[in-house]
Every structure is written in C-alpha cells, then in structure tokens.
Design a protein around this nucleic acid. Structure first.
Length: 429
DNA sequence: CACAAGGAAACGC
DNA sequence: GCGTTTCCTTGTG
C-alpha cells in the first residue's frame, strides 16, 4: 500500500513476474477451451515460476495457485502500480505524452501454448497483467527455421537521418528508466482511448481481440510520434506488426485489410465501442504538418476529439467502411467491466474485478497457420522450462524460443497424424 | 495503388 | 540481444 517511487516502479517493470498475482479460486476449468478438431489437447499455461498447477488424471488443469512466498510483495507492488497507472494519466496529458508512457511489461516470455483458458486474478495494472494472462494462438515456425533462411548480405546505402525535428516525444518518469512502450502495447492503449478509438482504430470483435486500423496512416503517425520517428508510415509499422505473428502476439485476420487480432488480452482491457457518437475515420491522407491528429505538444493541454479529427475530414462515413464484422459491431461489452464506451482513467477499478478474459477467436476468421495445437505433454515441458527459467532469470527469450520450437514440432506431428488417420492422439513429443 | 508477407540489415537501447 | 525501423521483393485485389 505504499506509494511507489520511480525506482520502485521501474524495478517492478523489470520483474514482470512480480506484477501479478494469481488467485486460484478464480480459476474455472470449465472455461477451458481448445482450438482444434484434432484430438485434443487441453492444456494450460503456467508461465510463472511461483505457481503450482493442479491437474486431474487426464491432465486437465484444475487449479493454479501461488506456490511460495512473495505474495505480500506482489500485492504491494500491484497496489503501487495500480495507483501509478491511474493517478493522473491522460485526461490532462496530450496524447503524445500519454503514449510515451510505458506501463506494460514485456511480453518476452509468452509461451506458445494452445490455448486453454486460465482464469486468474491478476490484481494488476492495465497491461501490467503479466505474460501469464496471455495465450498465443498462433502456429509458427521455430526461430531456428527462420534463421536458416538467411541469405547473403547485400550492400546497402547509408540511411539518411530522419528529418522533421519538430515532433517531440516527451519522456516522463515511466520511460526514463529505459522502459519503452512496445507497439502492441501502444495499440492497446489506443484501443482504450476514446480520442482515437474508434476514430482511428477500433475493435471489430472485442471478445476475440480483433481490431481494425480504421485509419492506418493516422495510427502509424501516432506511433511515429511516440517513437520520434517522423517518417513512420503504415508500411513500416506494418512490418513490425507482422513480426508479431512469429512471436505470437498478433494474428492477421484473413481477408480483411487492416484487421489484426491480439492473441490475448489483459482481462481488464477497456473496450471502447463506437456507439458513443465518435465516428471512425477511413484513411485520409491529409498530412498535417507533423501535428496530425491534433496531438499537441503542449504538455498539459487536453486534446479533444474535435481536435483530433479536424483535418481528417469530418464527414460522416460510418457505414461506408467495409465493416465486415457483422453483428457484434456495436456490442456493448464483454464482461462485467466498466461502462462500455467510457474510459475512466482516473477511477481505478478495484483490483479484484480484474479477471483474465481470454477470448476464443472466431476461428474461421483467423489464419489457420497461427493456430497452435499443443499437448498437455508439451505443456508440462513448458512448465519445466519455466522452472528452469526461474533459476535462470535471464533466459526468458530462450525459453520462449524453445517453447516455440516445441510447439511447432508438436503441431506438425499432430497435423500429420490427423491427416493420416484422423485418429491421432496427442502423441509424445 | 494500398495492403500484405517476409527477408535482410541497420539502429537504439 | 531485442524490438523495432528501413528497405526491399513479390504477390494480391
């Protein structure tokens, strides 16, 4: 319950495993689900070294619990983080300032597991919910395989420095410690900000984590501002987004332009829907001299929606867009959260309300190649890897890669078994 | 033409 | 080394 100083918070961010807390009584095995028609495998993901999982005879996950000390510390941290996150944020800050804050931990050790649902109580901060609340649905190539494709170098010219010095990204106490907001975090922030959602980016299927870059150029420009890359465009940002496929952070929604899917979402995501009078905007291309979106550099000006959209063309075009996501379009909200369409940044919600909400994607929408199938066996392997990781804190990335590799191996095996006889049990890996 | 996938290399932290 | 950024090739609608 103590307030956290900068250093406290920075330290906390560097130790994502401290940022959340599992409460076993929130776990509901009946919510588990899996994505495959293949004999299946329901597995859980327990990527935390201080967690214990309980299974039944069929290896079904029954319960996840903290298994050792540190709970107190965790709670303290959570409270501190929560208050930090909710204290003064956005309403009084410019978008630019707001999006230069970094309050999400790295997704460094997302594990490529199939997705069973693990409901946890992560009394965390928006986004500070840990990796353990994320489930990647993608199927992917092992990193090694990707690496194997390297070609020979070709000479390249020196890149020019980016011009346009007039865009400033304000650093604040959250990122002066070197912690930066990743692109996927940035997008999540945008999706929770009524100034840009649904105007420039919007949910098309919040339950599945599917969103659309309604105005890809504007989103890219915002990202460029955040990163102080005035030359940022959708092409470049899109490349970064595509890297997320491999890492299991995003999927592409097939056949729909500018539509992506988060493989998982923090449970206390705030879903802004577009029933609130804010119109979404198609890409326009007015270049507003570096101050697009009305994002001002004034440190304490409030940016209104009007400002945001001024040069973006103010005509209504709500229905003209290819809204291929049908019925859910104006859906209110997914769960018992705060009022839809209203972002209440200044009012911290009780931590207890935060629950993991893992949404089975509408499988048909998602490119199959990103859907994982992993056995319980593999999960146990992953858990072992997690234990190793706990002994070897610097090994997160390698654990992730190993998990990816295992996932890929298993998938191939399962796929071939399914193809051969349709019977294929979850074989040993 | 915009979007998309992904290789390759550079860059900044 | 990671997470991009930049540039590029190729492909689609």
């Amino acid at each position: 319950m103590r307030p956290a100083g900068d250093s406290d918070y920075t330290a906390m961010l560097q130790q994502p495993e401290l940022i959340f807390d599992f409460a076993s009584d929130h776990f509901n095995p009946s919510q588990m689900w899996a994505y495959t028609d293949c004999p299946a495998v329901t597995v859980e993901e327990v990527p935390h070294p201080h967690l214990l999982s309980y299974r039944d005879d069929h290896q079904q996950l029954l319960k996840v619990e903290p298994c050792e000390s540190g709970e107190e510390e965790t709670m303290e941290t959570l409270v501190a983080a929560d208050s930090l996150l909710t204290m003064d944020c956005v309403d009084t800050l410019s978008l630019e300032q707001h999006y230069s804050q970094a309050f999400l931990p790295s997704l460094g050790d997302v594990i490529a597991t199939p997705v069973a649902q693990v409901t946890v109580s992560a009394e965390g901060v928006v986004g500070a919910v840990d990796q353990s609340q994320w489930h990647s649905l993608h199927k992917e190539r092992p990193a090694a395989q990707l690496q194997a494709k390297k070609r020979s170098k070709k000479p390249r010219h020196q890149r020019a420095e980016s011009p346009t010095p007039d865009i400033k990204v304000k650093k604040n106490k959250y990122n002066k410690g070197g912690h930066t907001l990743y692109l996927w975090q940035f997008l999540m922030e945008l999706l929770q900000d009524r100034q840009v959602c649904p105007r420039y980016i919007k949910w098309t299927d919040p339950q599945a984590g599917i969103f659309k870059l309604v105005n890809s150029k504007a989103v890219a420009r915002l990202w460029g501002k955040h990163k102080n890359k005035p030359d940022m465009n959708y092409e470049t940002m899109g490349r970064a987004l595509r890297y997320y496929y491999q890492r299991g952070i995003l999927n592409k929604v097939e056949g729909q332009r500018l539509v992506y899917q988060f493989t998982s979402l923090p449970k206390d995501m705030i879903y802004i829907t577009d029933g609130d009078g804010v119109k979404e905007e198609e890409d326009d291309d007015q270049d507003n001299s570096g101050n697009e979106d009305g994002v001002s550099d004034d440190s304490d000006s409030t940016v209104s929606s009007d400002q945001l959209g001024e040069e973006e063309g103010e005509e209504e075009e709500e229905e003209e867009e290819d809204d291929s996501q049908p019925p859910q379009k104006k859906m209110s909200l997914v769960s018992n959260r705060a009022t839809p369409t209203q972002r209440t940044r200044s009012a911290p919600r009780p931590a207890a309300q935060r629950e993991t909400v893992l949404r089975p994607a509408s499988a048909s929408l998602i490119q199959e190649q990103h859907l994982p199938i992993v056995s319980a066996e593999m999960l146990r392997t992953l858990q072992n890897l997690q234990k190793v990781r706990s002994l070897q804190p610097a090994g997160q990335a390698s654990v992730f890669k190993t998990a990816q590799l295992l996932g890929s191996l298993y998938e191939r095996q399962a796929a071939s078994e399914c193809a051969q006889d349709g019977e294929g049990g979850a074989g040993d890996v």
